[in-house]
Each structure stands twice: as structure tokens, then as C-alpha cells.
């Protein structure tokens, strides 16, 4: 009796919540925002592939957080008597590498490094690009010329070569690899942000807010950024795959993560020596990179549909 009552009231709170979110006339600012998010989520949910991408990335985050609980072995423990065990051998689901370390555990810990790279690059490159691009586009004149020529200089460098030079100068290591990638990744964002700003800055709604006495800082941050961010987010998610691959490439060349750390690219480099006889050693981390890159691409595609202002309200 009690139980059914509880479940009934639970159901009614859920329908109540839904009605609150679907309200035609929101009663408060907070409700209006929640309702907008809810409708965005409903639209996103209808795109199955994008949802799959999001689920994979959520799984990646969870795996990274709970790595010590999930991994069956210590990723650093070597056991030379068990080296290069095939997949499915006892205690080692995905086999072991050339030093007898459990591949599955190393891949689980590797998720942390991958996320670290992705998060750092995603924090540095688009923010720098957005800042440079919108300021150059909005202020124009000399500021524009100086900032954009600087962007051109960075754009002219081949990405991996500049990253190589940077790492060579500062020493190998995951932080330097991330910095090198971020340093070469921001110019396209600056270009996109500037192009968007140029179309936005002469529009009537920017004139209108100027007539309220708003300064350049407020206009850039509150009026131009929200319109640029949509295309930047999409670009970031599409670039993420490339960034993971660049980090893996640096790891593969021995310039990214240093040997004991289980970075996926470094693991492929390690497995390369046995690729004909012990194919799984290189293939498994390769599959992990592939899956995460694909997930980012799917998510980016879904976000583009969702964030494009032209598709809103249709």
C-alpha cells in the first residue's frame, strides 16, 4: 500500500516535472533556461548516432575516473615470463605486451592520458582562437592586421613539424606535447571566429546595444561570443579526433608520453615491433583511438545540427 503510494507520487512528480519543463509560459528565468535545455536535449536525443558518440565519451570519462577499480592489474607491473600473451589468456583478457604488462589495464589507464590531452587542448586552443579572432574582427584596423598576420605565421607552420621543434626544445613529455599541439591548433579557430565576427558586428542588434552605451568588451563577450561559440564547438569536436591522433603520433615518435606511461600512441609504437606475430599489441590501443575519435566526430555532427541558429525553431 505504502509502496504503491510512493511510486504513484513518484510518477506524478515526473509528469509534474515534464509539465513544468514544457510550460508554454515559463514563470521564471530559471524555468525558461531549464526548459530550453530540456528541449535541446530532446532534439539531440533523436539523433541516434550523436547519442552513441556522447555515450562513448561518457563511458571514457567514467573509465578514466574509476581506472584503479576497473583495471585487473597494475599497468606498470612487468612480468617477463608472461610477455606477449595472446588475447583471452588467463587473467589477461587482451593479452600482454612485450614486457608482460596487462594490455587491458594499460588501455584503461591510457584513457586518463587521452582525456588529459583532449581537455587541455580544448581549453587552450579554442579559447585563444576565440579571443584573437573576435577582438581582431570587432576592433578592426591595426589590431586586426597585427593579430591576423600573427595567425598567418602560425598557420604557415606544418603542425607536426612545429610540435616536433617545440618538444625538441622543451624536452619530451605529455605537457609539452599538449602545449605544442595547442599552439598549432588555435589559428583555424581564430580565422573562424573573425569571419563570424565580421558578419555580426555590422548587424542591427549590435548597433542597438551600442545605442544603450555598451562598450566593446561587453559587446564582444556577451553578444558576439554566443554566436561564434556554436561553430567553434562543432569545429573542436571535429578537430578532437585529429588532436588525439597528433598526440598519438608524437607518442609514436617518442616525443610525447615517456615510455612507462600507458599512452595509446606510445603503446602502438611499442607494439609495432611485433605487429606480424603479435598483432593485438598494436591493434588494441589503435582500436581505442579509433573509437574515441569516431565518438567525437559523431558528437560534433549532432552538435552542429543542434547549435546552428538557422535550424532553430524549425
Amino acid at each position: 500500500m505504502n509502496n504503491s503510494n510512493a511510486s504513484a507520487s513518484g510518477a506524478s512528480t515526473i509528469t509534474g516535472l515534464r509539465a513544468w519543463l514544457n510550460a508554454e509560459v515559463p514563470g521564471s528565468r530559471w524555468q525558461a533556461r531549464a526548459s530550453a535545455w530540456y528541449h535541446g536535449w530532446l532534439e539531440f536525443k533523436s539523433n541516434r548516432l550523436a547519442l552513441l558518440g556522447l555515450l562513448i565519451l561518457i563511458a571514457l570519462v567514467l573509465i578514466a575516473i574509476f581506472a584503479p577499480l576497473l583495471s585487473p592489474h597494475d599497468p606498470y607491473t612487468q612480468n617477463l615470463s608472461n610477455r606477449l600473451l595472446p588475447m583471452g589468456s588467463e587473467g589477461h583478457l587482451l593479452g600482454t605486451d612485450s614486457l608482460g604488462r596487462d594490455l587491458l589495464s594499460r588501455m584503461i589507464y591510457g584513457a586518463r592520458i587521452t582525456l588529459y590531452i583532449v581537455a587541455l587542448v580544448a581549453l587552450i586552443a579554442p579559447v585563444a582562437g576565440l579571443l584573437v579572432g573576435t577582438v581582431a574582427g570587432y576592433l578592426g584596423g591595426w589590431t586586426d592586421t597585427v593579430l591576423m598576420r600573427l595567425t598567418d605565421i602560425f598557420l604557415a607552420f606544418p603542425r607536426l613539424v612545429l610540435a616536433l621543434a617545440f618538444v625538441a626544445a622543451l624536452g619530451a613529455g605529455i605537457e609539452n606535447a599538449v602545449l605544442a599541439i595547442a599552439l598549432t591548433a588555435w589559428p583555424p579557430y581564430a580565422r573562424i571566429a573573425r569571419a563570424e565576427t565580421l558578419t555580426i558586428r555590422s548587424s542591427d542588434y549590435i548597433s542597438a546595444v551600442k545605442l544603450q552605451g555598451a562598450g566593446a568588451f561587453r559587446i564582444i563577450v556577451k553578444h558576439i561570443w554566443p554566436l561564434c561559440i556554436a561553430s567553434l564547438i562543432v569545429r573542436i569536436t571535429l578537430d578532437m579526433a585529429g588532436i588525439i591522433l597528433a598526440a598519438a603520433g608524437l607518442g609514436f615518435l617518442g616525443l610525447g608520453a615517456r615510455p612507462p606511461s600507458p599512452e595509446w600512441g606510445a603503446m602502438i609504437a611499442d607494439g609495432r615491433r611485433f605487429i606480424l606475430d603479435h598483432w593485438w599489441v598494436a591493434t588494441m590501443p589503435g582500436l581505442a583511438i579509433f573509437t574515441v575519435s569516431l565518438a567525437f566526430n559523431l558528437l560534433g555532427d549532432g552538435l552542429r545540427d543542434l547549435l546552428d541558429p538557422k535550424s532553430q525553431g524549425k
Binding site: S203, D204, Y205, S207, A208, H223, L227, Q312
Partner: peptide, 11 residues
Amino acid sequence: FQDPYASLHPR
């Protein structure tokens, strides 16, 4: 302004 479709911030 003249065009109400252009004078309000779309976001």
C-alpha cells in the same frame, strides 16, 4: 530600427 528580424539578437 527598420527590420525587426535583424535588430534582435537571435540568441
